[in-house]
Design a protein around this nucleic acid. Structure first.
Length: 447
RNA sequence: GGGGGUGUAGCUCAGUUGGCAGAGCAACGGCCUUUUAAGCCGUGGGUCGAGGGUUCGAGUCCCUCCGCCCUCACCA
């Protein structure tokens, strides 16, 4: 383990003895690897820079792969082109070193565009060996803990980073075009609200006060609506002190959008447009392959009532008039962890989450959820047991909820109280935010 | 927390009924002026995740612990 590094340190000293600075400074790179390919002209003078990712020595010549953020360009180094002394330096180069290369473009016999190097400048010596060139870095533990290695070695990971950046940019543009104001609200809160989740705690010495990392921006965004902004959104980090898995990260980015005077349907149309337009604008396309599933984002998306999904799945139009015991009996084949001690809504939702939602692969708006599942949404006027809410399900998991927001402060106060009572029982330490007693018209969506 | 899997060279991985610790790439030395997973000859490199046990002998079998992955439960 030390041997490989010692060998590189030895080369470092040899380079210094030759009067070469192993860690250079500014280098006026004029051409990227992509420029060399796209603007190819035989004999064109170019100056490129990047990391050596392959070295194929050939006696008095050497072929190297030089990789920069735009791609890869091959260097062809000849002893008779750069001189004996400079060629001796080439022998001290390692995979992973960062170099600058000046020379002229040409095409090899095998048809690869390359730089015939006239001058090579060492910009940064790599003291750690890189992972293997062919099999790459597969150990997931190391890939996540040493992201820089993952990025150096795995092209698809670099492209994933680029794609994410582009999607974020297109989301902002989409919302900007529709008159939404981007805001940043407090990430450290005295009362962590807007969701049911365990928060991370911290301490603000100057105020001698315990603070929480936010679990959602919701309550502050609503304050902006109270203040008179009619279309606002925030696209930023939230923190939840919970388990982590491939699907859940304790710190994650969430988009939350509010629009005054609208309702749940306003938000449905907005989300549908946002996802499809951003997918196209960022070159992701409307056909998304994910494992075995192919998701087709083409509009319009399916809209279906929660009740209809349940009744259809259970093949029972009268499901909701059954007693818990009858429900458990009907669902006996589903191998669920349910009992007749549970509330009808809990049994039903267990069936929804375990059996129905995972099967909703194509984008689906599930509408008219039972009120007990969603504490801060407006009830439907025609049925107070339902709330005017959608949940967007794609590829078997919930992607975004959308609400007609509850704007009755008296009712909301009661629901906050109920929520606090529940979270006290659950040990989550929820607190009531008392500022929501001012009139407000809004709906929102969270992605 | 339950169940399953996994941990061996810098990287990717073999390792048979328990019998000298292996390969490819990377590294080091040598040859090679159009290669591209370059090629050829040679060399070095290991706390086999950790600890204990069985055995003449353990990478291999047994026990305990640790890391990671998958899955169930919990949790949005």
């Amino acid at each position: 383990m030390n041997e490989l590094k010692e060998q590189r340190l030895k080369k470092l000293n040899e380079l210094s003895d030759l009067g070469i600075r192993p860690f250079g400074g500014r280098f006026d790179r004029r051409d990227t690897a992509a420029d060399c390919h796209d603007g190819y002209l035989e004999g064109k003078e170019v100056t490129a820079a990047g990391r050596l990712t392959a070295i194929r020595g050939h006696g008095k010549t050497s072929f190297c792969d030089l990789r920069d953020s735009s791609g890869k360009i091959q260097l062809y180094i000849r002893k008779d082109s750069i001189g004996e002394e400079a060629f001796a330096v080439i022998k001290l180069l390692d995979l992973g070193d960062i170099v600058g290369a000046e020379g002229t473009l040409f095409t090899t016999h095998k048809g690869e565009i390359s730089i015939l190097v006239s001058k090579l400048t060492l910009l940064s010596k790599a003291l750690q060996p890189l992972p293997e060139k062919w099999h790459g870095l597969k150990d997931r533990e190391i890939r996540y803990r040493k992201r820089y290695l993952d990025l150096i070695v795995n092209e698809d990971v670099r492209n994933l980073f680029r794609k994410r950046s582009r999607i974020i940019r297109e989301i902002r543009r989409f919302l900007e075009e529709r008159g939404f104001l981007e805001v940043e609200t407090p990430m450290m809160q005295v009362i962590p609200g807007g969701a049911a989740a365990r928060p991370f705690e911290t301490f603000y010495t100057a105020l001698n006060s315990k603070m929480y990392f936010r679990i959602a921006p919701e309550l502050y965004l609503k304050r902006l609506l109270v203040g008179g902004f009619e279309k606002v959104y925030e696209l930023n980090r939230n923190f939840r002190n919970e388990g982590l898995s491939r699907k859940h990260n304790p710190e994650f980015t969430m988009l939350e959008i509010y629009e005054a005077y609208g309702d749940c349907r306003t938000m449905m149309e907005l989300v549908e447009a946002l996802v499809t337009e951003v997918a196209e604008a960022s070159d992701c396309g409307l056909r998304i392959e994910h494992g075995e599933n192919v998701v087709d984002l083409k509009r319009p998306w399916r809209r279906v009532k929660y009740r209809d999904l349940i009744c259809e799945y259970m093949k029972d139009p009268d499901w909701f008039s059954q007693t818990p015991a009858e429900m458990v009996a009907s669902a006996a084949d589903l191998e669920l962890d349910i009992s007749d001690q549970m509330l009808p809504g809990e049994i039903t939702h267990e069936i929804y989450e375990k059996c129905i939602e995972p099967g909703l692969i194509q984008p689906t708006f599930v509408l008219d959820l039972p009120a007990e599942l969603v504490p801060l949404a407006k009830s439907r006027e025609d049925d107070s047991s339902l709330v005017d809410v959608f949940e967007l399900v794609v590829n078997g998991s919930e992607l975004a909820p959308g609400y007609s927001e509850l704007n009755d402060p008296i009712e909301q106060r009661q629901r906050f109280q109920a929520q606090e009572d529940r979270s006290d029982q659950a040990g989550e330490g929820g607190k009531i935010d008392e500022e929501f007693q001012i009139g407000r018209a809004s709906c929102r969506v969270r992605v």
